[in-house]
Design a protein around this nucleic acid. Structure first.
Lengths: 357, 357
DNA sequence: TCGGCAAATTTGATCGTTCAAAATTATGCC
DNA sequence: GGCATAATTTTGAACGATCAAATTTGCCGA
């Protein structure tokens, strides 16, 4: 064989598979040893300024990037965060999942991490869920996990707690488990929406809840009740209709045509608000002037509706950053479990569905 | 130092960080060598039946899973597919992204792969996009990429073609580049929707297009024009209103109150259909009985609307599987570039917004 | 000029796996 | 039974990086 092949200075040729540039190549080019190149990347303060400059130049010149597999093998850290893709439930699709994942990818990028999306279908049973997590842990593919749509006594939390593996959750975790969670203060946000309506003079406000029993829905309802209880005298009602749009429409229509009709509808979700819009129209009333409506989540639909829907916006970027920060902290010191979770506010976005009177 | 520590038979203890189980541990437990364990996993046919059984038992017993980093380092294959998270564009959020990613995670899982989500913001400029891809390539973190929302002359396609790195695209790729794409036959689907309306006796059908210039929108429009041209005598129109909901509503309202009002509205997207619904109501007409409406994409909104919206459903699972299959093929044989892309049909889902007459 | 000590750099070992080739064991056939 | 050949298993090396320890260099004052 001829002399050792020198790395192609231009690795730009599309067709041929160029041999990968290793730390050794950079070392040779800069006239230093492997370890010095490694230090240039991981502990630059240890190098003399001139050396650092020389090595950095060689790195740029050759377009060197350390092989993450080799690095992971040696250091045990992977710079990858696992995120289980929840099953696609056609009955309750999560319109925010796309946006949340974008925010997560951005937040992770800020600390040099990536998101590993893997299948984990709760419908396959707890055993399958546990396996999907344990496989990733055993294969050492991730440093930790971020969970979303966490519910009370979430089996995923149990699996990870049991395994002693770092994670952070979007959604409150039951007491007695690691309190490494971030959540929206849905209660306060709903109360704020109600407060807004009260300020605008509404006195007959009706809450439309979803039939599903999910923690965030319970929180929102609590927020409504709380604001209602603290309000000046006035009649309030809590409707809890089904998720079937047609049935819900009829229920709301009945409400609106009966005596003492509400002047405002506070909806647990934007989708419920859409149904409410349709019921209001079916009752020959107008959203905004006749009946104020608020939603929750601030999905894109809100601005497409006419009038545009007042809603509570989830601070996805802040949530994602908080989750990533907490996870990284847990990875770096698995022993330090945060004493409490973090509640972030959801900002009410006021639009034409709640016009000032 | 004492004797070599034997691996904990029960690695279940949550608090202590158990040493990881290596192939060596399994080999010792099964009374064979490293390589035999490796073969049990990667080439079981090479082992005698009795040996295989013994090794498999040891693997299960110890809960062994090969370290993916070590394996990647040696083999060069990572079992990870990169997916760039498109920037969150509030003006045109993609309501299907969540569902698409779920489908992708599932399809990848079926062939033992995972999805690596990384930030790649086109708004940061072509240079930043190229860097985000090249970083991942140079760090050898992925085997290939899957792109979505691919447009004509997509810069990401250029970057990957240039780098000679495997990828598969959801969305047609311009000729002269690797035709490794999968797409929806939007043209045929739109034509099918028009055909449906024609069958129902509609003769004045209006197409509502979005102002954005995107390939799939062009395809849908072409489908409309094509079906219109082939139809029996009848008047057709093509409206191209703006994306501003209010302005669009007015435009449609004018259409509906003018002479020769259309009896059917074919909308380029479900969101446009939502606006159309509101315009129809504003014109004191009823969706369904007075004016038929169709959408495109079949987002969750469709079934929440009243009447439910007829739309063309994207076969996300089939798309995801096709993309993964094509990518894996490209990874295994980078030389073999498919001669042509793959068009998948979008199934019209008929609902009450297009009632039979 | 020469210790002494800190700073800078290099060397050897190692992470856990698979490849390639060598070594061992089993099988078939006369 | 003996031998060629196939089947099975083992050994040594390597993937590309970082750690830990050893070595060299640079700087300062006596």
């Amino acid at each position: 064989m001829a002399a050792a092949p020198s790395p192609l200075t231009t690795a730009r040729r599309g067709t041929m598979t160029a041999r990968q540039v290793t730390i050794e190549d950079v070392a040779r080019a800069a006239g230093v040893s492997r370890q010095t190149v490694s230090n240039a990347l991981n502990a630059p303060h240890r190098l003399r300024e001139a050396t650092l400059a020389r090595v950095t130049a060689a790195i740029d010149e050759l377009g060197y990037r350390p092989d993450q597999s080799a690095r992971s093998l040696r250091t045990g850290t992977r710079k990858v965060i696992g995120y289980p893709a929840p099953a696609d439930n056609p009955a309750d699709p999560n319109p925010l999942m796309g946006g949340f994942l974008q925010a997560l990818a951005t937040a992770a990028d800020d600390v040099g991490h990536r998101i590993l999306l893997f299948r984990s279908d709760p419908q396959q049973g707890a055993r399958a869920v546990a396996k999907s997590f344990n496989d990733l842990i055993a294969a050492r593919q991730v440093d930790g996990f971020i969970l979303s749509d966490v519910i009370h006594d979430d089996p995923r939390v149990d699996v990870l707690t049991e395994a002693g593996f770092p994670f952070a959750a979007f959604g409150r975790i039951a007491p007695g488990r690691p309190q490494n969670w971030v959540d929206i203060d849905s209660t306060a946000a709903t109360a704020a929406l109600v407060g807004l309506l009260l300020d605008q003079g509404h006195r007959r406000i009706c809450y439309l809840n979803s039939a599903a029993s999910l923690p965030w829905l319970a929180d929102r309802r609590a927020g409504f009740l709380q604001a209602a209880a603290a309000a000046p005298a006035g009649a309030f009602e809590v409707g809890v209709p089904d998720d079937d749009p047609a049935a819900l429409t009829h229920a709301v229509q009945r409400l609106l045509t009966g005596p003492d009709r509400p002047t405002a509808l506070v909806c647990a979700t934007d989708w419920l608000a859409l149904t409410a819009y349709q019921a209001v129209r079916a009752a020959d009333l107008t959203v905004g002037s006749d009946v104020a409506v608020t939603g929750f989540n601030d999905i894109p639909l809100c601005t497409l509706l006419q009038p545009a829907l007042t809603s509570a916006r989830l601070p996805l970027a802040a949530i994602a950053h908080a989750l990533v920060d907490r996870l990284i902290a847990a990875v770096e010191d698995p022993a330090a479990v945060p004493a409490s979770g973090l509640l972030l506010p959801a900002e009410p976005i006021v639009r034409d569905s709640t016009p000032g009177r």
